[in-house]
């Protein structure tokens, strides 16, 4: 064992010409191994269970459950719904992503006050967010389904085009845009691989693995959170939850991932 490991090391060292590069490649491999080990027993299950209970719970002044909520495939249909979001909803004449639609259903269908609904959009320690729980449950019902986001309605096309502009918008003290980190293939920040979100395969791999349980945070994080925290690191002001900007950007990312098989909630470092 020891000899073969040493040989592998030597071969690697010769092939890459420097011991340093070998050490770097080894770190990457170790991270891959860590990721594999995490796959079993994904704590996202805990959020899924809570989300399912929330989906079925009768709530609000109008005393209805979210099972009457139409995510685009008819009231109460959850199976495969996320793989077609964001989409145009005729009842509001707008394009909505999952969270935007959930806010709509909670306020209009269940009659809950908007302020109460939006009180905790992201979980924080032992305080869980209903949105992250619902996102875990609803997205899990699209596991194995191919992403199929439509662009037939003019407003869907508009959202995509606006999302593209936002993706490439440079600003802030660091001159960063989403594209600064996500428009070239094979790049990383520190040891973190960066998906090229303008490349079909990379975009599919990235989009289909959100939401994800983040081991480093002990939280389940949704696409809405991913965008929020990317903008924080981009040194932008704070992105409003379920805003039109978030929907447009999600539309751009989701559409670029079309054809990819959805595989979340995933688990990430």
């Amino acid at each position: 064992m020891k000899i073969s490991a040493l040989l592998a090391f030597l071969v690697g060292a010769v092939a890459s010409n420097t011991v340093l590069a070998q050490a770097g490649a080894d770190s990457v491999r170790q991270i891959e191994k860590y990721r594999d080990a995490l796959m079993d027993g994904n704590p996202a299950d805990l959020w899924e269970a809570r989300g399912e209970e929330l989906w079925k719970r009768v709530r609000g002044p109008r005393a209805v459950s979210l099972e009457h909520c139409d995510l685009g495939k008819g009231p109460g249909v959850v199976k495969g719904a996320y793989a077609e979001l964001p989409r145009y909803f005729a009842d509001v004449d707008k394009v909505m992503d999952l969270e935007t639609r959930l806010v709509y259903c909670m306020t209009v269908l269940q009659g809950l006050p908007r302020g109460e609904v939006l009180r905790r959009t992201f979980g924080d320690g032992s305080n869980r967010s209903d949105f992250e729980s619902l996102a875990a449950f609803i997205t899990a019902e699209s596991k194995g389904v191919k992403m199929a986001v439509g662009m037939n309605h003019p407003k869907e096309k508009e959202a995509f085009k606006l999302g593209e502009k936002i993706f490439f918008h440079r600003g802030g003290p660091h001159d960063f845009s989403c594209a600064t980190c996500h428009s070239e293939s094979g790049k990383r920040i520190r040891l973190q691989d960066l998906p090229n979100l303008t490349d079909e395969k990379d975009a599919q791999r990235a989009y289909t693995t959100w939401p994800a349980y983040r081991v480093s945070q002990g939280e389940l994080r949704s696409m809405q959170w991913r965008l929020y925290d990317c903008f924080r690191q981009q040194r932008f002001p704070e992105l409003t939850f379920a805003s039109d900007t978030s929907v447009a950007l999600t539309m751009f990312l989701a559409r670029n991932a079309n054809g990819g098989v959805f595989n979340a909630p995933a688990i990430k470092r």
Binding site: D40, G41, P43, Y213, G218
Partner: peptide, 8 residues
């Protein structure tokens, strides 16, 4: 032991 532990 980690947060949200998994036992098998």
């Amino acid at each position: 032991v980690s947060k949200n532990p998994f036992l098998q």
